[in-house]
Design a protein around this nucleic acid. Structure first.
Length: 732
DNA sequence: AATATCTTGCAGTCG
DNA sequence: GCAAGATATT
């Protein structure tokens, strides 16, 4: 047997992990150290050398995309498709188990998954029905509470109210919500994990079966596991399982959504015979970039000691640009990208990173002006669009008449004369008689509703039944198409403004295509293609921007860039308050997570890294002055080169626009090159007069000769940047 | 039921 | 400053 393709591409540390004996293994893998490679090669090693059947291996990734990629890489390495290997996300795997063992899990066979929007809508409706005080009962907060409990593995009966009235109410609400879900056959995301965990706890023989089957448990992005995920894994591993987990404590950036990096330490306690391997050799970035990344992350107090290094060159210095505002920042970035492209490089080798989504706008405008194609990550995903969810609600109702949220969603879409009053009556009747909405509607349409409403409801019920009958024996995509047409959703959306209508109808057509192309590889026996498709739609809600996959400049947040790499990277908006974000700046934990985010961003760059900040930024409609991010100061000076330095000066305190605490001084800034004396007879702090704007004070000054620009704070007109050669300023 | 007007809040994200 | 959601208006 030839193991060279599995072993040869690995360094010593990677090889140690890949070829390890049957021990629990914790791999601490720095950014760009080949962590996915280790996982993939480990699986290949198990199969090829240790003779483990893929049937006995379970691999967990954090996103569907990562899972799909992992499978492809494994199959490529092994040279054949591997069908009986379980690779997926925690949610995907939990779902698979629940489909398989729906009876043991106490679920109806036709259970459906509730996404977070569905969950929110349901809770909102519950709040309204219960007529709770809407200032204290905020659906978002209730949602957060319920999900948090579930993520911690808690059912309502497990939670103590600590004698707190409010908390007792919340727990009661959780119970109520759970009852509705049970009755409607619905399972939310957190519930998938919780049920899967309970499946182990309540059915020891089932657990035993899976323990015997999955001896090898591999987990990627281990630092991102939450409590219930870890518990599920822990129970499955038992005494005999061999977990192999890979993660990077320095890249833990999702604490706010329940991820606990502490699981890395817990792992070592729970599996005392675990071996720990550190991967520190980086294959991605230049020496300079790695030095900067190391320097930044060293400021965190709680971390495992780890230092990235490369066998490669130091490469270019990191460039820092101090823009005078966010538009200047964007123009600078776009100019650099154009330069990059002129140099014969690709647009998709460049990434513009920012802390929050709102920052993308200025870059988009600049890119549009420059005629550069770009792609913004994030935003609404395909299966989350309103028109798609409407169509899916019809499909779900056909699968499961008890699905109350779907019933409510489409009972009057398109409008068919079933208004709020009628729906309320149905809901009330359902509640009073402990019936599903569907049954309640059937009863009431028999006569207890006013004639017109009764007819409308009757027509709706008939429609669903007819559609169900019509589509029983046809192909999946034909079913979808038929239902979209006959429900008259297309006609409904056609009434909207032209542009919107077109996009919506296109999306509905796209849904039919999605159904046509759908292959239910992982569908469980007894699951109809439609049920599999619906589950797929919720669990894998698709890319936000399916189109525009070709050569585009990549725009995304620092969070969504994790796992990616680009030759040319811009980390923008490097200002205190923006990054680190204001809301994380004041506590140590928050700041450390921001710093890890900075570490993630820095380590995405392969050869060139630009940091940009603006001294003035328009936020929420007002211009604000800002200090450069403290993270810039954490990078050793000799690694940074300032591009086109601008001049710093104390702001005048007397002006209405300036506020205490916003005074900028050159002395605190790094690196050097700031604070040169001004030319052209203009002095910083100089009082000047402008023909149109009147009197003002020179705040800042940038450039030389004909291109020189000056920033003046006018008494009445506010702060302006003026080109010296046009402004005709008079010295006072 | 569709449309106009007002209020609110404003990090990040995957399943 | 803007967009989404809630509420008022016809």
């Amino acid at each position: 047997m030839d193991v060279t393709p599995i072993i040869d591409p690995l360094n010593d540390a990677q090889r140690e992990a890949v070829t390890a004996a049957d021990n629990p293994m914790l791999v601490i893998a720095g950014a760009g150290s080949g962590k996915t490679r280790v996982l993939v090669h480990r699986i290949a090693w198990l199969v090829e050398v240790d003779g483990v059947s893929p049937h006995g291996i379970l691999a967990v990734a954090f996103t569907n995309k990562a899972a799909a990629e992992m499978r492809i890489r494994i199959e490529k390495l092994l040279g054949e498709p591997i069908n009986n290997l379980w690779v997926g996300t925690f949610h995907g795997l939990a779902h698979r188990l629940l489909r398989r063992h729906w009876q043991e899990a106490g679920l109806p066979q036709s259970f459906q998954i509730l996404d977070s929007e569905d969950q929110h809508r349901l809770l909102k409706r519950m709040c309204k029905n219960l007529e709770l005080d809407e200032t204290t009962w905020i659906p978002r907060e209730i949602q957060y509470f319920i999900n948090k409990q579930k993520d911690d593995g808690l059912r309502p009966e497990h939670i103590a109210d600590h004698g707190d009235q409010n908390r007792r109410q919340l727990i009661h609400f959780y119970k109520l919500y759970q009852d509705i879900c049970e009755q409607s056959g619905l399972v939310d995301f957190a519930e998938l994990l919780l049920r899967a965990h309970e499946l182990w706890l309540h059915h020891p023989n089932l657990l035993e079966r899976y323990r015997r089957r999955f001896r090898h448990l591999l987990v990627d992005e281990f630092q991102d596991t939450n409590a219930i995920q870890y518990a599920w894994l822990r129970v499955l591993a038992g005494e005999t399982g061999i977990p192999f987990v890979v993660g990077d404590d320095d890249q833990s950036i999702y604490r706010w959504r329940g991820a606990r990096v502490e699981h890395i330490y817990k792992f070592q306690k729970d599996f005392p015979n675990a071996r720990v391997v550190k991967l520190e050799q980086n294959y991605r970035s230049t020496g300079t970039i790695l030095k900067a990344a190391n320097a930044i992350i060293e400021n965190n107090s709680t971390r495992m000691d780890k230092k990235l290094w490369t066998g490669g060159n130091d490469g270019d210095l990191i460039k820092l640009y101090n823009a005078y505002n966010e538009r200047d920042e964007a123009d600078f970035v776009i100019a650099r990208i154009q330069e990059w492209i002129r140099g014969g490089n690709r647009r998709d080798e460049t990434a513009v990173l920012y802390r929050s989504n709102a920052q993308s706008r200025v870059f988009e405008e600049s890119l549009l002006r420059a005629n550069l194609p770009y792609r913004v990550y994030g935003g609404q995903r395909f299966f989350e669009r309103a028109e798609i969810k409407d169509a899916l609600a019809y499909l779900r109702l056909i699968e499961n008449r008890n699905d109350a949220p779907s019933f409510e969603r489409v009972v009057n879409v398109p409008t068919r004369g079933i208004g709020a009053t009628t729906v309320n009556t149905i809901r009330e009747y359902a509640r009073a008689n402990a019936l599903p909405m569907w049954e309640a509607a059937r009863s009431l349409a028999g006569g207890q509703l006013p004639g017109r409403a009764a007819n409308a409801v009757q027509a709706f019920l008939m429609l669903i039944e007819t559609l169900a009958g019509d589509t029983r024996d046809i192909e999946l995509h034909e079913q979808v198409d038929h239902i979209i047409q006959r429900s008259r959703l297309t006609d409904h959306y056609r009434k909207e403004p032209r542009e919107k209508a077109e996009a919506r109808i296109e999306n509905l057509e796209e849904l039919v295509s999605a159904a046509r192309g759908f292959e239910d590889d992982e569908a469980e026996e007894g699951m109809s293609p439609m049920a599999a498709f619906l589950a797929h739609a919720v669990l894998e809600s698709g890319d936000a921007q399916g189109d525009e996959w070709d050569d585009c400049v990549q725009l995304m947040t620092l969070h969504s860039v994790k796992g990616l790499e680009f030759p040319l990277v811009f980390m923008t908006g490097m200002e205190d308050g923006l990054f680190p974000h204001q809301r994380s700046m004041n506590d140590a934990d928050g700041l450390e997570e921001e710093r890890r985010l900075c570490y993630v961003g820095t380590t995405r760059a392969m050869s060139e890294l630009y940091l940009t900040c603006a001294e003035q930024r328009r936020m929420y409609g007002v211009d604000k002055f800002a200090h450069p991010s403290r993270f810039i100061r954490e990078i050793p000076e000799d690694l940074i080169e300032e591009v086109r330095p601008s001049i710093r000066v104390s702001r005048p305190v007397s002006h209405a626009r300036s506020r205490p605490g916003q005074t900028l001084t050159g002395s605190t800034r790094k690196p050097g090159g700031l604070g040169k004396a001004a030319e052209n007879g203009i002095q910083l702090g100089q009082h000047v007069c402008h023909g149109k704007f009147g009197e003002g004070v020179v705040l800042n000054y940038e450039g030389t000769g004909a291109h020189a620009r000056v920033q003046v704070n006018f008494a009445t007109a506010g702060t302006k940047w003026l080109v010296m050669s046009y402004a005709k300023l008079e010295l006072m």
